[in-house]
Amino acid sequence: MKLHTMLGAALCVLAATAARAQDPQLARNLAATCASCHGTEGASTGAMPRLAGQSRAELLQKMQDFKAGKRPATIMHQIAKGYSDEQIALIVDHLSTRH
């Protein structure tokens, strides 16, 4: 792995950590935008997939795939493109710890 790639990844982690430290409600607020389709705290009981409690790695991969257009969707690819990688990480961190 090239040095600039490793540094970029490290900066993303630091930025997400800094964002969480600055506003502990940020992840919750970002994840709240998912509620209209995926239920409160991602706990869907309907036709939409349940996000609450899925593994962080799985949720992160799905969101990255939506954002990159690699995963078929009717609207999620558009929604995912509206978030930065740091915001996606915060959303995923929050939803993966819900039950």
Rank of each mutant, 00 (worst) to 15 (best):
M1T: 14
K2W: 10
K2P: 12
K2N: 13
K2I: 01
L3M: 10
L3G: 13
H4E: 11
H4S: 15
T5S: 15
T5D: 13
M6P: 01
M6T: 08
G8V: 00
A9Q: 05
A9F: 05
L11W: 09
C12I: 08
V13F: 10
T17G: 10
A18Q: 12
A18E: 11
A18P: 08
A19T: 03
R20F: 11
A21N: 12
A21S: 13
A21R: 15
A21H: 13
Q22T: 12
D23E: 07
D23L: 10
D23A: 05
D23W: 09
P24K: 00
P24W: 01
Q25W: 04
L26H: 12
L26E: 11
A27K: 02
N29C: 03
N29G: 09
N29R: 02
A31N: 07
A31F: 07
A32W: 00
T33Q: 15
T33Y: 15
T33G: 14
A35H: 14
C37Y: 02
C37F: 04
C37H: 00
H38R: 02
G39R: 02
G39V: 01
E41C: 08
E41Q: 12
A43L: 09
A43W: 04
S44M: 06
S44I: 00
G46N: 10
A47Q: 14
A47K: 09
A47E: 14
A47T: 15
M48E: 06
M48G: 03
R50Y: 04
R50L: 04
R50I: 02
G53P: 02
S55D: 07
R56I: 01
A57K: 15
A57L: 11
A57Y: 04
E58K: 01
L59M: 01
L59H: 01
L59F: 06
Q61N: 13
K62Y: 13
K62M: 11
M63Q: 01
D65H: 00
D65Y: 03
D65C: 03
D65Q: 06
K67E: 06
G69P: 05
G69I: 06
R71T: 00
T74W: 06
T74C: 11
T74P: 01
M76N: 08
M76Q: 00
M76K: 03
H77S: 13
Q78V: 10
Q78I: 10
I79N: 05
G82W: 09
Y83F: 15
S84L: 11
S84V: 06
S84K: 08
D85Q: 12
D85M: 12
I88Y: 07
I88A: 03
I88V: 05
I88H: 07
L90R: 00
L90A: 07
I91A: 01
V92S: 05
D93N: 03
H94I: 01
H94A: 08
L95P: 14
S96M: 00
S96A: 14
T97W: 15
T97I: 11
T97K: 15
R98C: 14
H99I: 14
H99P: 15
H99C: 14
